[in-house]
Simulated scan of single mutants.
Amino acid sequence: MNILWDFDGTLFDTYPGYSKVFSKVLGGKVSEEEIYKRLKISLSHATEYYNLTDSQVREMETLKNDLNPGDFKPFDKVEEILKYADKNVIMTHKDRDGVLAILKHHGWDKYFIDMVAIDDGFPRKPNSQAYSHLHNKYHIDLVIGDREIDILPGKELGITTCIFGTKSDIADYCLSDYAQFFEIIDRNDFNK
């Protein structure tokens, strides 16, 4: 089984760290829980919703870069799935160096054979070009993300999709936690 993973909110719980940064930029006037909800839609949505100035966006980028790779925790049971898969790839709007730093910190860089990051020049999700690129190279069997924007490109390409941490009418499978993953595998043939 070859899996294409989203990064933020799918492999690692990055949103709490980003919510803290956003709250600091907003002067503590908005709760981290409220910011978290906006960030789950997208960073650009949260930036527009809170009407951040250019100066605040720059401050946020600086503060995000100050976060430690250890500040981001992997979700429970993800490593078991990474070990199970034949090939794992990542498609993310995060920069390559940031992703690699987090993966290396947790010893997970060994699980991934390829990645498309924001600095690779592909259009942003939900455009399917990056997914198509990875699918053509690795014949992806499953796309996993935490937002519909992460799985829409997979749906467009006819790849089985799985959404993590939320419900979705468009996902083939919805997981509230990764312990459920192997139940899905047991019920389906992904040519492992």
Rank of each mutant, 00 (worst) to 15 (best):
N127E: 06
A179S: 15
F22H: 00
K64N: 11
Y36A: 02
D141P: 01
S168G: 08
F75C: 07
E59K: 08
K77M: 10
P123C: 02
V99C: 06
V78L: 14
H93A: 12
P16I: 08
I140Y: 09
V57R: 13
A101C: 04
L11G: 02
V57T: 13
S44P: 04
C174N: 12
H139K: 07
I35D: 03
N191S: 15
G121P: 03
D8G: 06
D86E: 14
F164H: 05
M115C: 06
L43F: 12
G107I: 13
T14V: 05
K94G: 00
H135S: 06
H105Y: 15
P123D: 11
R187F: 02
F112K: 14
Y36F: 15
H106A: 02
D6T: 11
L52P: 04
S132F: 11
E32S: 08
H105K: 13
K87C: 01
K94S: 05
E61Q: 15
R38V: 08
F12R: 08
G28H: 06
K87V: 11
G145P: 10
A130S: 12
I170R: 14
G121R: 07
G17E: 07
Q56T: 06
Q180S: 12
K125C: 11
D189L: 09
I118G: 00
S31A: 09
D177V: 08
L67K: 14
D189I: 07
I144H: 03
C162Q: 05
F182M: 07
A117P: 01
K155Q: 07
I113H: 07
P126W: 10
A117R: 03
S19P: 03
H105M: 04
K73C: 02
A130M: 15
G158A: 13
D114K: 06
D13S: 02
Q56S: 02
K64M: 12
I151S: 08
E32F: 04
G27L: 10
E148D: 15
I3C: 05
